[in-house]
Computed example of a mutant assay.
Amino acid sequence: MESRSPYAAAPFMWRFMLVLARIIVFPLCRLRVTGDISPELRRGPLILASNHVSPFDPIVMTAACHKIRIAPRIMATGGLFDAPIAGAAMRKAGHIRVDRRSATVADALPAAARALKDGALVLVYPEGRIGLDPWMWPERGKTGVARMAALTGAPVLPVAQWNTHAVLPYTTPKHLLRSLLRAVRHRPVVHVRFGTPVDLTHLTGTPGAQAMQATRLIMAGIDATLAPLRTSEMETPHYVDTTRAEDLSRVRPRRHADNHVTH
């Protein structure tokens, strides 16, 4: 008997949430999904590493996953798991809790590694927060994704999303109703692009040095996946989220296609 696809084998609650995300997204924006994932990678294990620009990102990413028929397990902040309704849904969907700035944050890495060794797709935001780069490019990443890849041998595929900040700004849920009404009125175009796996085969040095090298390569891969989505706004976004703070401490050097270093 032919085995079910990984999407069909996902928990019912997660498949329901994937459909629900498409319904939520439709009135708020026009979702454009580009790129794809090969059949070999879809069977897992696979790490999806995405940039993070808005509180709306997880909903858009869920809708994009539904559109291309994948059901990755998401590494999500512990606060979601503590919410009365959302928490139960996240647990039933099989997502992975990350308690940042707590003594149990290290528990997330073994949990993700176990999921990957079981052949799962795992989605993670390697920046660890909504990025505060003034130009809205990905910040320096945490080494967790690189360590997950090293532990499991799972390939890392960069994913980029863009213009979600035009739907929900950085300070959401403050002025949430106003933001939603503006989004319904304008329905901005929001992009999600699935890239190509990052080559992590030529790393050298100690495990720590390799994790740092791999992290830089992964973030550069997200840059390269994001660049085609914002070709006319490489420096300053067309839509500026005035609620975002700016933090220069984690800004990364970034190369344009002409190899000039910016930032």
Rank of each mutant, 00 (worst) to 15 (best):
M1N: 09
Y7I: 02
A10E: 07
M17F: 08
M17C: 13
M17W: 06
L20I: 11
I23S: 01
I23N: 04
I23F: 10
I24S: 05
P27Y: 02
C29N: 06
V33T: 09
I37C: 08
S38V: 14
L41W: 05
R42S: 05
R43C: 04
A49E: 06
H52E: 11
S54I: 06
S54C: 12
D57G: 04
P58W: 01
A63C: 12
C65K: 00
H66E: 15
R69Y: 15
R69Q: 08
I70K: 00
G79R: 02
L80K: 10
F81V: 00
G87K: 05
G94A: 03
S102T: 14
D107N: 04
P110Y: 03
A112F: 03
P126R: 12
E127R: 04
E127A: 08
I130E: 00
G131D: 10
D133M: 15
P134T: 06
P134W: 12
W135S: 11
P138V: 09
E139K: 03
G141D: 06
T143V: 15
G144R: 03
A146D: 06
A149Y: 11
A149I: 09
A149P: 10
L151Y: 05
P155C: 04
V156S: 05
L157S: 10
N163G: 02
A166I: 02
P169T: 14
L177V: 15
R178F: 13
F194A: 09
G195T: 10
P197T: 15
V198A: 05
D199H: 05
H202A: 15
G208K: 12
G208H: 13
A209S: 09
M212Y: 13
T215P: 00
L217V: 05
I218N: 01
M219K: 03
A220W: 07
I222N: 03
D223H: 06
T225R: 03
L226K: 00
L226I: 05
R230V: 01
S232C: 09
E233V: 01
E235R: 14
T243E: 08
L248D: 11
R250P: 10
V251T: 12
P253C: 04
P253V: 06
R255P: 08
V261S: 11
H263V: 14
